Amino acid sequence: MKLLMFDTTYFCYKTFSKTVETVEAFDREESITDSLVIFVNVENEDEVQKDKVVRKAVNNIRWLAKKADRNKVVLHSFGHLSESKSSIEFAEDILNTIKEKLTAKGLETSMTPFGYLLEFKIHVKGESLAKVWKSI
């Protein structure tokens, strides 16, 4: 799994086109302020170590949320962080699992629409910890 984590003052997205046939068709536009935006690439090798990968992802995100003093997290499936990609079903499942665990830990967690290309605007803070990349 690869995580590209941003501490943002502003993140806005709009669905552009559906890329996964099995997901529900809809249009959505949303703006979120003062949150961590986490771009997640779920890799093929994650499928044999789901629990370990989920635990490490949750711990890394919680660490940054504490350092950045953020309570809101947005997860975004982003398959461009690695050449390795898991199955679509597994990626959606693991993102939902991470979301549930972060929520259970007290973080207000949402997810961009899975299976869609998005238009987005993002304002990332300038501090060093506002841009963190992790390979799990």
Score class of each variant (00 low, 15 high):
Lys14Ser: 12
Thr15Arg: 02
Phe16Asn: 07
Ser17Arg: 15
Ser17Ile: 10
Lys18Gln: 13
Lys18Trp: 08
Lys18Leu: 04
Thr19Ile: 13
Thr19Val: 15
Glu21Leu: 02
Glu21Ile: 08
Thr22Phe: 05
Thr22Val: 06
Val23Ile: 09
Glu24Phe: 04
Ala25Gly: 11
Phe26Trp: 08
Phe26Asn: 03
Asp27Phe: 09
Arg28Thr: 03
Arg28Asp: 00
Arg28Ala: 06
Ser31Asp: 02
Ser31Ala: 14
Asp34Phe: 02
Asp34Met: 00
Asp34Arg: 09
Leu36Ser: 05
Val37Ser: 11
Val37Ala: 07
Val37Phe: 12
Phe39Leu: 11
Val40Leu: 02
Val42Asn: 09
Glu43Cys: 13
Asn44Arg: 13
Asn44His: 12
Glu45Met: 13
Glu45Cys: 07
Glu45Asn: 13
Asp46Glu: 07
Asp46Gly: 08
Asp46Met: 09
Glu47Ser: 07
Val48Pro: 03
Gln49Tyr: 13
Gln49Gly: 04
Gln49Met: 15
Asp51Glu: 15
Asp51Gly: 01
Val53His: 08
Val53Met: 14
Val54Asp: 05
Arg55Ser: 12
Ala57Ser: 15
Ala57Gly: 07
Val58Gln: 06
Val58Lys: 11
Asn59Trp: 04
Asn60Gln: 14
Ile61Lys: 14
Arg62Ser: 00
Trp63Cys: 04
Leu64Val: 11
Leu64Phe: 08
Leu64Asn: 06
Ala65His: 06
Lys67His: 10
Ala68Met: 12
Ala68Ser: 13
Arg70Pro: 13
Arg70Lys: 15
Asn71Gly: 08
Asn71Tyr: 12
Lys72Ser: 07
Lys72Val: 13
Val73Met: 04
Val74Leu: 08
His76Cys: 11
Gly79Thr: 10
Gly79Asp: 07
His80Pro: 08
His80Ile: 04
Leu81Ala: 10
Glu83Ile: 09
Lys85Gln: 15
Lys85Glu: 14
Lys85His: 11
Lys85Tyr: 03
